[in-house]
């Protein structure tokens, strides 16, 4: 739980294709919107305005700040993101620990960073600058990648932890990205979870993907794999997860299928939470027993 930030609950990335499903679903606490799509001034689209009036939190999710880029974040982009947050009445905004452009070239994708001390300094400086320019807290997300830089000095968990703590920003933990990287680089995702500052989690992403050519691709166009739901369960058994949402960007299934997926996410969260509560109650009972038998 983050002080001053109300839990977000269950959410989904708002896309026009699934606007009706989102409108009908009554158990949602928040939606995430593509920040760059809502940068214009003026009235919000009716569908978004309706959700806001219903009390859903709206979180702008940026993909263009390039906080892992060599250049400091662009003033105009930062100002636009700050305006978007104000326009949406957002409780926080989120971005990525990644770079998207360099030397005037746009990659069109969130690319990973060389995990070196030098890069760490730059990302921390960029993230601090972004944080200072925004009217609400900033959460940064771990990205998925198919390749690594050759000169990384730190593990992903170590680098992520350093960025979050030194820039003093929140974490948007993407469990699908963690799942993808753990498969493609052969590490244990639970060890990753145990090494990062879970108390900085603002909310969590889950999404689907697929295997192609021996690699797992985080597509946001396929069903959420059971392993990602298991990670959510594991996370919820460790901490009270303040918010979790589904990211689906393409190949939208019928609403009933996507709705079932949202329910599966809520169920995984509830499973993890109840096992945590049960463990806590067991521990309390043991203490009481020890005291009474003394």
């Amino acid at each position: 739980m983050i002080p001053g930030l109300a839990p977000l609950g269950l959410g989904i990335g708002w896309r026009p294709e699934i606007a009706l499903l989102i409108e009908r679903r009554r158990d949602l606490g928040f939606i995430e919107v593509m920040a760059e799509d809502f940068a214009a001034a003026g009235r919000l689209p009716r569908a978004i305005e309706d959700l806001r009036e219903r009390g859903l939190a709206i979180v702008p999710h940026g993909v263009s700040l390039s906080l892992g880029g060599a250049e400091p974040p662009d003033r105009h982009r930062l100002e636009a993101l700050a305006r978007t947050a104000a326009r949406l009445g957002a409780p926080l905004v989120s971005e990525h620990i990644a770079f998207v452009r360099a030397g005037g070239l746009e990659s069109g994708h969130l690319l990973p960073l060389p995990r070196t001390r030098d890069t760490l300094e730059l990302v921390v400086a960029n993230a601090r600058e972004a944080k200072a320019a925004l009217p609400v807290p900033l959460a940064l997300e771990n990205v998925a990648t198919l390749f690594e830089w050759p000169d990384s000095e730190m593990s992903e968990a170590e680098f992520l932890t350093e960025v979050l703590e030194r820039a003093d920003v929140l974490l948007l933990l993407d469990l699908a990205n963690l799942h993808a990287n753990s498969l493609n680089f052969g590490y244990n995702p639970l060890e990753f979870i145990d090494r990062i500052p879970l108390d900085r989690i603002a909310y969590v992403h889950v999404a689907g993907g697929m295997e192609r050519g021996g690699l797992y691709h985080d597509t946001h166009a396929h069903t959420v794999p059971p392993a990602v739901l298991e990670l959510l369960n594991a996370l919820a058994s460790r901490i009270e997860v303040p918010g979790v949402m589904l990211e689906r960007d393409e190949r939208f299934p019928p609403d009933v299928v996507l709705g079932a997926e949202l329910s599966a996410i809520a169920a995984a969260l509830a499973r993890g939470r109840s096992s945590r509560v049960a463990a806590r109650n067991r521990a309390r009972a043991e203490v009481t027993e020890n005291v009474s038998t003394r």
């Binding site: 880029g69 770079f99 452009r101 360099a102 030397g103 690319l111 730059l122």
Partner: peptide
């Protein structure tokens, strides 16, 4: 870093 990132892109 700018040069290396541009090369990668």
């Amino acid at each position: 870093l700018a040069i290396r990132q541009a090369d990668l892109i």
